[in-house]
Write a protein that binds this DNA or RNA. Structure first.
Length: 400
DNA sequence: ACTCTGAATCCAGACGTA
DNA sequence: TGATTCAGAGT
DNA sequence: TACGTCC
């Protein structure tokens, strides 16, 4: 979920916070990853056959998530990235309504799935089954065991994973948080990576680059404090409050600039357009974003160790019916990158990156008129890091 | 006229082989 | 669930 | 690159 419409808004209004990069550029870095989100994605994506069923072991237990985590993690390690997987804890009370709605939709999908199976409509089965996915405690335990065997650190967040990722990043324990969820920024992650796992797959031809977002640049170019940014995100719409019809990022930002505080901005809105009281706990949402329950980074000891080969084989082959030959290959890949695993980045000499201040002229003005005329203004994908020398690198091939 | 929101729609991993 | 596209409401 | 397979 995250913050409604935040990414397009930042691309347009604070382009200097977005930098294009590649996974290969992350070699030697420690990256925090929202494990619960990965788990969900693997369950949705790793499927097969007309019935779109998950992979399963001989006992009939789903193994899609194990397959997904295994191959992705090996890929990261081969790339010299040191991943830290952060698991969700107990969801905050404020999220209750969001979770209730989500569960409601899943139950609807359950019904649709049953109906589709009845009628044998393969297409409908496929669509409905993707919406009925639920991550079970057992699946979380499976993944944690796998990661332990791989020698990759696991962090159990007390509450939202994104909040603990942010804490680790603020403390300098990780370089960035890799997530698709924009509220990582709202939780205060200094750096986040978006699309890190996008594969250069063929079909869609839309190989999006990895985006590196820098929170300090967001605040600088939008010319707001962190507190105001949090208020802005709440007004845009987040998991913890309802949304206000007719208010999106652009309007939300103008209102905050005009009136200073969230309360003052909201006071100018027709009262019966606001969500009901119980879904509009502004100050509670604000508190959750600014000081959420999170791990204490000083208590977290991150270690990457050699894999427990025997344990890994037993877990994958005996317990989960993986093919022995394939597992052997995975183990070989792991030991191959182990040698390169301790490599650290050798770039600190060059990157004495001067924290160049953004010229006032480049600060976002929400009241300025848009540059008219340019026909390509529609979706200006200027994400070149704001450098004015940046030629618009338009390399999009539009066939047909 | 222009901009924005919100509903509708499509899609969702990673690997190896041919 | 997110990204993208389109229609229509709001300004 | 396109497509089938992983369990």
């Amino acid at each position: 979920m995250g913050i409604k419409g935040l990414m397009p808004f930042l691309s347009d209004s604070a382009p200097s916070c977005v930098k294009e990069t590649k996974m290969e550029a992350m070699t030697g870095r420690v990256i925090a990853i929202d494990a619960s989100m990965c788990l969900y994605q693997f369950l949705v994506a790793v499927r097969q056959g007309a019935s779109q069923s998950n992979l399963a072991n001989e006992a009939g237990e789903v193994t899609s998530h194990i397959q997904g985590f295994l191959s992705r993690t090996v890929r990261l390690l081969e790339c010299g990235i040191r991943p830290v997987y952060v698991f969700d804890g107990k969801p905050p009370e404020l999220k209750r309504e969001t979770l209730r709605e989500r569960e409601e939709r899943k139950q609807e999908a359950d019904g649709e799935l049953a109906a589709a199976m009845e009628s044998g409509d393969a297409d409908a089965i496929k669509k409905a089954s993707h919406r009925t996915v639920r991550a079970t405690p057992q699946m979380n335990a499976d993944v944690q065991e796998l990661l332990r065997l791989l020698g990759v650190p696991v962090v159990l967040a007390p509450c939202e994973a994104e909040a603990s990722c942010a804490a680790l990043c603020k403390a300098g324990k990780v370089y960035a948080t890799a997530t698709e969820d924009m509220d990582a920024l709202t939780f205060g992650t200094p750096k986040m990576l978006k699309n890190l796992f996008d594969t250069e797959s063929s079909r869609t031809a839309q190989k999006r680059p990895v985006f590196e977002l820098t929170l300090s640049r967001v605040l600088e170019q939008l010319d707001v404090s962190m507190a105001t940014f949090i208020d802005f995100c709440i007004l845009c719409g987040c998991d913890y409050c309802g949304t206000i019809r007719g208010i999106g990022p652009a309007t939300a930002f103008k209102l905050l600039k005009l009136h200073g505080s969230l309360e003052a901005a909201v006071a100018t809105i027709d009262a019966n357009k606001l969500p009901p009281e119980e879904q509009w706990q502004i100050s509670e949402a604000r508190a959750l974003f600014s000081s959420p329950p999170q791990v204490d980074p000083s208590q977290v000891d991150l270690k990457w160790t050699s894999p427990d080969v025997a344990g890994l084989k037993s877990f994958l082959i005996d317990r989960h019916s993986f093919n022995e030959g394939r597992v052997t290959k995975v183990v070989e890949r792991l030991s191959a990158c182990r040698a390169a695993g301790s490599q650290s980045r050798l770039e600190s000499f060059f990157t004495a990156k001067a924290p160049k201040t953004l010229p006032a002229s480049e600060k976002f003005n929400p009241f300025a008129k848009r540059a008219a005329g340019s026909p390509a203004t529609k979706r200006a994908r200027e994400i070149g890091g704001g450098s004015n020398t940046g030629k618009a690198k338009v390399q999009r091939k539009q066939l047909s």
